[in-house]
Amino acid sequence: MRRKVNQAINLSDYKDIWVIGEQREGKIHPVTTELIGEAKKLAEGTANQVMAVVAGHKIEEEVEKLLYYGVDKVYYINSPLLETFSTDGYSKAIAELILEKKPEIVLVGATSIGRDIGPRLAAKIGTGLVADCTKLEIDPSDGKLLQTRPAFGGNLMATIICPKNRPQMATVRPGVMKKAVHEANAVGIVETVSPTLKAEDIAARVVEMIQSGKKRVNLTDAKIIVSGGRGIKGPEGFDLIKALADKLGGEVGSSRACVDCGWIDHMHQVGQTGTTVRPVVYIACGISGAIQHLAGMSDSDYIIAINTDPEAPIFKVCDYGIVGDLKEVIPAMMEEVDKLNVFEL
């Protein structure tokens, strides 16, 4: 039966902030602790508790780890039918629990899996969903959730509300919110729930998982990222980028132009259709600074730009800019770093 929105529900029946924990092949996805960090921030000074929901099977130990991030409760939806991911199984099981417990806010990671089940959940429950949020706040006047997100390829930011329906649901972009702190002691409890799921409910099932095989780059957690753009002129340009990244203990990023040219794998792409990063230092080498690239790195603490074109838009958003040829500047930077290290000895 199809649910409806705007049914004049009693908003005060809804409480607590829920985080839909994502697990892949039995391991909790890092976005989950980011969502918990954000949920705790939103719950501060209110009566709301922070709860996580994890669907799966035989992952008790992994689920208990979440208690060290300061959640009040973890609902563990346990069923053999949830051992591998399915949109049908996960969304049915989680929607059922949301409808029963009535949380006020539900946060989902905007990963390729979260963006698959998020809208399915909202449609099952009968509420709105705000996509790919980069900022969440509580309106102090009436307690509603202000959900801010980029649209039009990052050219515009919009704050969206969901005034008449509950829960207020958002998918949250990975890499943007601060992770919850890992505490020495666990608080909270795990409550195991059995869903009313039947095998026939799952119409689409995973029959094979193909690991990408390549070494995974961890751009999201990197403190320093050195990124190359079309200005590096060819795949071998990444040798220079990597040399600097290695020297600084950082990771290699890329603009989409280089990915599209086949110079580097998509895993390295920073931006709207790549990874969102917020390292302490982001060094953009030979990157013009297109809005879609900026959408993925403009929250970095310090942005450094190296570009031959003094008019390149990247200089408008950088902290320090060098007009120059990266083939000259990068080796010179590496020499200077070597000198520093000598002094430290």
């Binding site: 709105g128 050219n155 515009l156 919009a158 005034p163």
Partner: peptide
């Protein structure tokens, strides 16, 4: 009227 979400405000980043 039938939309659960509304744009509250929009701005240039």
């Amino acid at each position: 009227k039938g939309s659960p979400t509304n744009v509250y405000k929009s701005f240039v980043p």
